[in-house]
Amino acid sequence: MDELVDRLLLIETLNSTLIHFILSSQVEGSVDPDRVDSLTQGLLRARKWMEDTMSMEGIPKSTADMMGLIAKRLAQLESLLPKLSEKAKAAEAGRHPTQEILSFLDETTVRQQAMPTNPQAAIPLVETQPTLPLYETAVAKAKEVYKRVDIEDDQWGLVSQAQQIIDQYSKRCHVLLPVFWLEANRELHRYRSDSPLMEEAIKLPAEYMVKIIKTLLTEAPGARLLQDLYSKRAHETTLEASETERLERAVAKYFSGLDELLRGQMPNVEDKISEAQTAFDGFGWGGPELEKRLIKRINQRCEEALQEATHATEPARQVIYAEITKLLSKLHHAILAEPRLREVLSQMKL
């Protein structure tokens, strides 16, 4: 009976998680595909536990019938979430540049129509310089203030530092999870911008990622758990394509959130902090089969970034830390969404 209660509590936890996901997505006006995929993994396992429970001895038929209805509903949700994830991934990729140009052209047309029609009023007092054609102006406006290149620039040694830590412990620890954070760190360093804030936009989150790698490999309980896993699981030191794709999208989303700031414009700081708080509140803990102590360490790093966003004295830093909170949360959801990475957390619980 105690096991039945535990499983019903699990369903209730999942239910509240889904409600929070729906409401927070409505508030944010967007859906995080990695969070969707991590929910899908949780739903799949919850449904399996529910179906296993239905066949347990001593379960009344009426209870089993009700649980069967719940399992059926979970299966329906499972079939919908992948479709939602694909739509969210497409939306997260952003609008096509042509749409940006057309939007700008529409705005320009409105401004031109609002100009005075009196010919005398339209004559400039001094000779004006030739201007770019409207299309070229639109292209220039739509041009991104940052770009991604193929080779990272390890300006502060944070990539090599993380790599050295992993190399040092790879002979006795399973390093797939640290490698995920290393590659996210490496991806950060592939972005370029002329903005004076770009240095902190890269360096600050990279420092968090190095700290996470150190925590996993050198501090309890991660060090012991990864050492134990080393003897039980094949050595894995490279990411699969889907895992890489998730972290690339997460980092791209991070810089997208900083676009306004990198352009020299100050976004609404309170809105940014509110978004970060929502991301932190929606932090994924996974099911009972996952090793929560390691997840808690990631949660602590997210909380630290959120505190910095709240208490930093410089508005620009507040915005960066808010986006770091969202980035770390999204990367964690990416881990929960990937079967292989999730399996690592599960095996450490055994």
Rank of each mutant, 00 (worst) to 15 (best):
L182N: 06
P82A: 11
S62F: 14
D34F: 06
T244C: 12
L177H: 01
Y230F: 09
A250P: 02
D6Q: 15
T17N: 14
E245H: 09
R224N: 15
C302E: 06
E243Q: 04
T325G: 07
Q161N: 14
E289M: 08
T40L: 12
L182E: 10
S170M: 07
S242D: 15
R111Q: 14
R190F: 08
P130T: 04
N299W: 13
L331P: 01
S256K: 11
L204G: 08
S274Y: 12
E78Q: 15
T313I: 03
K326Y: 12
R293M: 00
G94R: 10
S79Y: 14
G29Q: 05
Q129S: 14
L84H: 06
E136Q: 15
K296I: 11
V251F: 05
F280V: 00
A334W: 05
L258V: 04
S242L: 09
L336A: 09
R301E: 08
Q163A: 09
M115F: 09
E323S: 07
R249G: 00
Q347C: 12
D150Q: 13
G29Y: 00
A223P: 01
L204D: 10
Y135R: 14
D154H: 07
S274Q: 10
S103H: 05
L176K: 09
R172D: 03
E245Q: 12
K48S: 06
T53D: 06
R148E: 04
R301F: 07
Y191G: 02
E240S: 13
W181L: 00
I202T: 08
A184K: 06
S160H: 11
K211V: 04
D2T: 13
I335Q: 00
A206T: 01
T13V: 05
E57A: 11
Y135N: 06
I22P: 06
V251S: 09
Q99Y: 11
D228E: 15
L345Y: 01
T128R: 14
V145M: 11
L225T: 12
D154K: 03
E248D: 03
Y146P: 03
T278A: 10
R148D: 03
L188R: 02
L176A: 07
Q307T: 12
A322I: 01
Y254H: 01
T40W: 07
D228T: 10
R342G: 11
W181E: 03
N118K: 07
L9Y: 13
E219M: 13
I59D: 07
G58M: 06
S160G: 00
R263L: 06
M54K: 00
G157L: 12
D259Y: 04
L217F: 06
L18E: 08
Y191K: 05
Q26V: 08
T237H: 01
S256W: 02
L328N: 03
A184H: 00
I295H: 02
T108K: 02
S329W: 00
L182Y: 01
R172F: 04
L328S: 01
W49D: 05
